[in-house]
Amino acid sequence: MKNFFKIFIATFFLTLSFSPFLANAGEVFLSTKNIEFARGEDFIVEVKLNTQGQQINAVEGELVFSSGLGVKSISDGKSVINFWIQKPQITKLGNVRFSGLTPGGFNGDNNLLFKVTFSGKVPGQNNIYLNNLRVLLNDGLGTQANITTIPITVLITQQINNEILNLFSFDKVVTDNEPPEGFKPMLASDPLIYNGYEFITFTTQDKISGIDHYEVREGDLGIYVVAQSPYPLKNQKLDVPIYVKAVDREGNQRVEVLEPKNPIPVSKPGMGIFAVLGLFLLAIVLYIKKQLQTK
């Protein structure tokens, strides 16, 4: 009976391993240059997707990590995702949520979704894995792709990170001196959102460090406020220019201007003002004349 059980288990796993279903399964994997880091040392974990021949156009999920790790930054520079529904960000302790779309889809074995720079806080084993993952095919139906995920475990050692260790760090700091790409903010209104009020949409990319955030300023005298697209406008008269600033992770900026749809017409002074001006000057002349006569 014991032998039968062993044979059954072995057959079951052998069958699974040769199953075409699994052979075609894509894989969301976590890539790091090392698995052992000193306490306080920064390291990058890249979240990547191997599509295994499937055309993928939408991805969402959560990157979960142990409390012994801290997140220093998250970057979507060089990401295969064109439009983020939810930009990768910490939504709760030990959890980075993300959701994005690439129209037309993509294919390939090494597609970067985003990368997270961690810092080892507490010595010991720390798990990093993906949860609630959904990867959808570009088939017009939103069919779930065959995807597996592989967690990783990194070891944070007792040794405290110092300058010497930093010199040997595998993860180079990205140098980005270029502003985000040029873009075109769009003005729109639709009864379906913001009760039909005018809003703007904007998006651009930064191919090196990734976009950090956007800011919007309404009018020359307004102030920039951090904003997300779509952004409902406070000035519904649309009579002032709208400035949209994209800022990348390194602080480089690009500002695009949306000219006012209904600019305030520059009023030309009528003849009335000249009549008043003329009368005023005439009064001065008469006053001077009178003064001269009295002399």
């Binding site: 156009n57 939408a58 969402e60 037309g104």
Partner: peptide, 30 residues
């Protein structure tokens, strides 16, 4: 704007499952 909001307008919910989620975005992407 309607992502994860309740009772989205009918023609935004592309697969008619009464919510706007990743599947609707995937259909739009196609």
């Amino acid at each position: 704007y309607w992502y994860t909001k309740y009772l989205p307008p009918k023609h935004i919910d592309l697969n008619n499952d009464k919510k706007v989620d990743l599947i609707d975005f995937s259909i739009m992407g196609y």
